[in-house]
Amino acid sequence: MLLVPLSERQLAAFADKHATQIPYDTSPRHLAGPGDARHVTHGLAAAGWNAVSDPLSAEIILASPDLRHRLQFDPQSRTSAWWRLRAEPVGTELGWYAEFGEHVPAEVLAGLTDALVAQAPAEPTSPLAVLDAAGWLIDGRGIAYSDHPSCKVERLPENGAGTVPWREQVRVAWHIEVRDLPTDIGSRGAHLWHAAFHSHTPEHLVTAFVTALADPAPLQRGMFDRTATYGVTQKPSPLTPEQTVHAHATRVKALRARARPTRRQQKNPVTAPAHASTAQPAARR
């Protein structure tokens, strides 16, 4: 394993990029585009995760200190899933798998990874309860729709039935889909990105993801950053570039401190099996 702690040089590189960008408040969040992947990778590195991928490759693979969790970011993926998160089974804890599409905002995914390196809450809140409190519409089938009607969060039945194309390969408990607004009456908008969580994914992690997704606060994007669609609302942010960089550094520092108790408990690394027991379907558009 290549031990690569988060360095001052890496933080400086993040600062250099964002210091030259004028931030624009971009909303809704689910259409803000991918943003900077270092919101995710820097947070995990600060929590003790290590790089296990080729440092000269575009693909990034990070492994947790106990080797149980692994996150893969592949911007050259031939599927619609650019991020894949896997947990190996250990003891009585079952393995699980989650994946996220190209345009998932890094800040939203970071809501999940931040929760992954922290202690699980004693009284977790259900994802639908979070969305209901945020004002999302929840129908009788357990599907939640955002105010901007292009994002839906669906809890699939226990038998695995649902609208996920690869549900025959792996049982999915939660599925999130973001589409562009339709151009014609009666048509469906173009697929923008998705998130899918295997049925054994700890529910507090799904809750953390949808909490970040439903947060009404806009995300900051540079003038020429990619967004998921042209249908976003953007206006100059009251935040300065220096404030954006400072917020990132403060969060990384807090994650490093929060993860220390968890790392102390992870004394025995997990021995990964030759073949992962949790299915990793090749997502299709």
Results as ranks from 00 to 15, higher is better:
Ala37Val: 14
Ala37Thr: 15
Ala37Met: 10
Ala37Phe: 11
Arg38Ala: 06
His42Asp: 00
Gly43Asn: 03
Gly43Pro: 00
Leu44Glu: 01
Ala45Ser: 11
Ala47Gln: 03
Gly48Phe: 02
Asn50Gly: 05
Val52His: 07
Ser53Glu: 09
Asp54Cys: 03
Asp54Asn: 15
Asp54Ile: 02
Ser57Gly: 13
Glu59Tyr: 04
Ile60Gly: 04
Ile60Arg: 15
Ile61Leu: 02
Leu62His: 10
Pro65Gly: 10
Asp66Gln: 07
Asp66Leu: 05
Asp66Arg: 09
Asp66Asn: 14
Leu67Asp: 09
Leu67Gln: 13
Arg70Met: 11
Leu71Ile: 12
Gln72Pro: 00
Asp74Phe: 09
Gln76Tyr: 00
Ser77Trp: 10
Ser77Lys: 11
Ser77Gly: 14
Arg78Gly: 14
Thr79Leu: 03
Ser80Met: 05
Ser80Arg: 08
Ala81Ser: 10
Trp82Arg: 05
Trp83Ile: 04
Trp83Phe: 08
Arg84Ser: 09
Leu85Trp: 08
Arg86Val: 13
Arg86Asn: 06
Pro89Asp: 03
Pro89Leu: 04
Thr92Ile: 04
Glu93Trp: 02
Glu93Ile: 04
Glu93Phe: 02
Leu94Gly: 03
Gly95Tyr: 01
Gly95Asp: 02
Trp96Asn: 01
Tyr97Gln: 13
Tyr97Ser: 13
Ala98Phe: 06
Ala98Arg: 12
Glu99Ser: 15
Gly101Lys: 11
Glu102Lys: 11
Glu102His: 13
Val104Asn: 13
Val104Trp: 00
Val104Ile: 14
Val104His: 04
Pro105Ala: 07
Pro105Ser: 08
Ala106Gln: 12
Glu107Asn: 08
Val108Lys: 08
Leu109Gly: 14
Leu109Ser: 13
Ala110Tyr: 01
Gly111Ile: 00
Gly111Gln: 09
Leu112Ile: 09
Thr113Tyr: 00
Asp114Trp: 00
Gln119Glu: 12
Pro121Leu: 03
Ala122Asn: 06
Glu123Gln: 12
Glu123Asn: 11
